[in-house]
Design a protein around this nucleic acid. Structure first.
Length: 808
RNA sequence: GCGCGGGUGGCGGAACCGGUAGACGCGCGGGACUUAGGAUCCCGUGGGGUGACCCGUCCGAGUUCGAGUCUCGGCCCGCGCACCA
């Protein structure tokens, strides 16, 4: 075999310089508008990737990984002939940017503009097939004008409400946080322990659609783990609300929520959440001071709940069925913000209540048989005991019958409780769109007329948060003081800005309509392009972003602005890239890798291939740069063999088989996002063509197919080779190679012969050879004859095209 | 603790519905070319015996002619949720 590439007559190969090709084709694509989508195209395919948050730390390789995987899918569909819309933008408002701006002492506006510019440059260098003419920047008034419009629609529909409530306050970020932004009692962004404050806030009534959003999940084609996360977050539980009369305190009664009404006869005390907003109303007069002192002494939001901490409020509650009096306690293990903020404690059948009862010497009564409540709580089912007239009934039936008893006495009712809570979207910060509301002394909160949008974010020098529960915008008097739009009375603007999850909650609706300056959502465009056909992004947004996006789409659908209630027909969570031992890549862990130097040295195509070859796209993987060399070699080989091809026999059935097999392999791999195996198939094809090229008999049709199949993964080199093959137009718009399954079929197959399940021989035969035939062929194998030594097999299993197993 | 994924060569990972385990790549070994290094190309590469033999997909049982794949039990790792009554 020759060891050097022969120089074919009349053809000298140029040296492959991938970074040069990157620049050349990126410029050409921009000029020729190769990725510009025909917005009226007959086969719309909306391929969406989660838009990035442009931080000052630059785009890292984890972002490149996510975007490349989404881009490959979009490019494949485009080659298949779809009108693919791959837009991209920047989620550039928000606390994170603002905190960074504060840290470095620069205004967030200039900082953000620079970050966006940098990100855009990096993204373009990756070679994404993005239609940049629909770019979004959430900080641009052209965009946030419509974010404000969205808010106004919610406000008009009664889905946005200004009310006082207990809120999560981060004493470091000096703002309220959504429940979703509090992780184990701490601020998701800075890790500071969150406090509870009572402030007037804007709530979006996400709970109104809790049941609908839960039900709709069943029919969505989403990554299962994402759907599970959503179900858990919505947290539906069935049970009952039960009223207890109270004696000895300001409140005449309390309602508790339970999922186990069947255990009602075992309720020996009640517990009010220590953080219940009206805890004082439950306390007996003479215990007020003691309880207040106790509450102040509690350490907030500890990671490990302590089921022994609590205090007797001195109040007694009357059991609605037995008339018995039970004590009322307060404890931090009960959450003041969930359900009614109070529970009936059934220590016999709830482990937390059991521990609490033990710690405070409270009565433990068994009401469901099956366990030993002197040892631990029995949380399973069983026959009811100590439950008056219901004794002997199974607990499952008891659930219903207890509710019936309660309903008859008007002391309770069946109830479905959701864990999902309303979304607090006001932020007492600077870097966000002002909420378009004017507070009038006569009319209360009034929406800014739509014609007056946007409410521009005033330019202020001092954008530091005040920490008083009011946004720094409150200091801009000329901006704050305005007449009421309804009556003209002197009024004040709302000074809070919105959570940036509102910005990102509807951006995908806006992309198709970005060229309309006079409306948020052009009806025709929206109907044509929504919902999104394929959405790809990180699973870290499984509950936050995706929940808000679903809510907003559903709400706007209810108002007739969008065609469907669900925004994303398919969603796939890409895997995470890890690096340096443990953990996903993140700025805080200091293990980010910047893609720029790799692209500068090896070209974007090499990096793209390497990233996608690390492992299954949906599972992620550990970043390493060692393997990148393999992809460089592969591209060198492609470069060579494609240009040397052209003299082979187009009808060669064996090579046609190989070609069709590869098309099928790449196609099925792409459809399931198993890009690593698609690339493996390309390696094999290139290897084969290269060998033939060396012998001067490589087929042009193979080279052409290779280039087409490679195009989604390595768009720059594919485009260059496409041109060098003399093809016209862009490979990215050319048809995907036709695949004929019948041409991929092998005429001869290898059959494995096992004796007692162990491989002893193989033989070749025609595909489709019948089982009986296989059996005699197997028995004729010399090795088999030897092993059987004349004994006939006791049993023979023959599977056509696969295997013969002889049992002796 | 609960839920969801996973445990396959030195490494990343392949393996359709149970049917020749280890595709493809990295690394490593050998060779070609080169003044030399890098790059490129070719061959080999699960372990052990070293002739067609044995052992091998986290461990232990089971189903089956046949198990990486299915069932049961256990161990380990990752991710998510974590007092939601």
């Amino acid at each position: 075999m020759e060891s050097q590439v022969p120089a074919p007559p009349g053809l000298r190969l140029d040296r492959l310089d991938l970074p040069v090709l990157d620049a050349k084709w990126q410029r050409s694509w921009a000029e020729r508008e190769t990725y510009r989508t025909d917005m009226r195209g007959p086969r719309p395919f909306y391929c969406l990737m989660m838009f990035p948050y442009p931080s000052a730390e630059k785009l890292h390789i984890g972002n490149a990984y996510a975007f490349t995987g989404a881009d490959i899918y979009g490019r494949y569909r485009r080659q298949k002939g779809d009108d693919v819309f791959e837009p991209l933008g920047f989620d550039a408002f928000g606390i994170h940017s603002e905190n960074y701006a504060l840290k470095v002492g620069e205004h967030p506006a200039t900082l953000t503009a620079r970050n966006v510019e940098h990100f855009r440059g990096q993204l373009k260098r990756i070679g994404l097939g993005v239609d940049w003419s629909h770019e979004i920047d959430t900080t641009s008034p052209d965009y946030y004008r419509w974010t404000q419009w969205v808010f106004l629609q919610l406000f008009k529909a009664g889905l946005a409400e200004h009310r006082e409530g207990p809120v999560n306050w981060c004493p470091s970020c000096l703002t309220v946080l959504a429940d979703e932004q509090v992780v184990s009692g701490a601020c998701e962004r800075c890790g500071t322990v969150v406090e509870t404050r009572f402030l007037k806030q804007w709530f979006i009534k996400t709970t109104r659609y809790a049941q609908e959003m839960l039900d709709a999940l069943d029919d969505l084609d989403w990554s299962e783990r994402t759907k599970i996360a959503q179900r858990n977050w919505i947290g539906r539980s069935e049970g009952a609300l039960i009223d207890f009369r109270l004696n000895g305190c300001a409140r005449p009664q309390v309602t508790v929520f339970t999922t186990r009404p069947d255990t009602l006869f075992g309720a020996t005390f009640l517990v009010i959440g220590a953080d219940h907003p009206q805890l004082a109303d439950f306390v007996r007069e003479d215990r007020r001071a003691a309880v207040e002192e106790w509450r102040a002494s509690l350490t907030l939001a500890d990671a490990e709940p302590d089921f022994s901490v609590g205090i007797d409020l001195g109040t007694v509650a009357v059991h609605p069925l037995t008339g018995e009096e039970v004590p009322v306690w307060a404890a931090p293990y009960v959450l003041g913000g969930y359900g009614t903020g109070a529970i009936m404690a059934v220590p016999g059948h709830d482990q937390r209540d059991w521990q609490f009862a033990r710690a405070h010497d409270l009565r433990i009564v068994e009401v469901i048989g099956g366990g030993d409540v002197t040892v631990e709580a029995w949380t399973g089912d069983g026959p009811m005991v100590n439950s008056g007239q219901l004794d002997g009934a199974p607990s499952l039936e008891g659930k219903r019958r207890v509710v019936e008893l309660l309903e008859a006495r008007a002391a309770g009712r069946a109830h479905v409780q959701f864990r999902l809570r309303d979304w607090i979207i006001s932020r007492q910060r600077y870097w966000g769109p002002p909420l378009p509301i004017i507070h009038c002394p006569v009319h209360g909160p009034v929406g800014v007329p739509e014609a007056e949008l946007p409410v521009l974010l005033p330019e202020v020098k001092d954008f530091r948060p005040l920490g008083t529960g009011v946004s720094p915008l409150a200091q801009v008097e000329a901006w704050v003081n305005v007449p009421c739009p309804t009556c003209g009375e002197p009024s004040k603007r709302e000074t809070d800005v919105n959570d940036n999850f509102l910005d990102s909650g509807w951006y995908y609706m806006r992309y198709p309509s970005t060229d309309f300056g006079d409306r948020a959502l052009d009806p025709e465009r929206t109907r044509h392009w929504l919902p999104v056909d394929m959405y790809i992004g990180g699973n870290e947004h499984a509950v936050l972003h995706l929940m808000y996006a679903r809510f907003l789409m559903r709400a706007l659908h209810g108002m007739g602005h969008v065609p469907t209630p669900e925004p994303f027909t398919r969603f796939r969570a890409n895997g995470m890239l890890t690096f340096g031992g443990k953990g996903k890549m993140s700025k805080s862990k200091g293990n980010v890798v910047n893609p720029d130097e790799y692209m500068a040295r090896h070209g974007a195509d090499t990096l793209r291939l390497h990233l996608m070859f690390l492992g299954p796209y949906l599972e992620g993987g550990e970043w390493n740069e060692r393997g990148m060399l393999g992809q460089s070699r592969f591209l060198e080989r492609v470069w060579r063999c494609v240009q040397l091809a052209g003299s082979g026999d187009d009808a060669d059935p064996e090579r046609e088989r190989r070609r069709h097999r590869t098309i099928a392999a790449v196609e099925t791999a792409v459809l399931s996002l198993h890009y690593n195996t698609a690339i493996a198939a390309l390696h094999e094809l290139a290897h084969g063509i290269d060998e033939e090229a060396r012998e001067g008999r490589a087929r042009r049709i193979d080279a052409r197919t290779l280039v087409q199949l490679l195009a989604p993964f390595a768009p720059h080199i594919a485009e260059e080779l496409w041109e060098r093959l003399g093809e016209s137009g862009s490979v990215h718009r050319a048809a995907w190679p036709e695949h004929d399954p019948s041409l991929a079929e092998e005429p001869r197959v290898t059959i494995a012969v096992q004796v007692n399940g162990k491989l002893r021989a193989t033989f070749e035969c025609e595909a489709g050879t019948a089982a009986v035939e296989l059996e005699s062929l197997a028995l004729a194998q010399p090795r088999v004859v030897e092993l059987l030594a004349g004994r006939p097999p006791r049993k023979v299993v023959a599977v056509p095209d696969r295997i013969v197993n002889l049992v002796v």
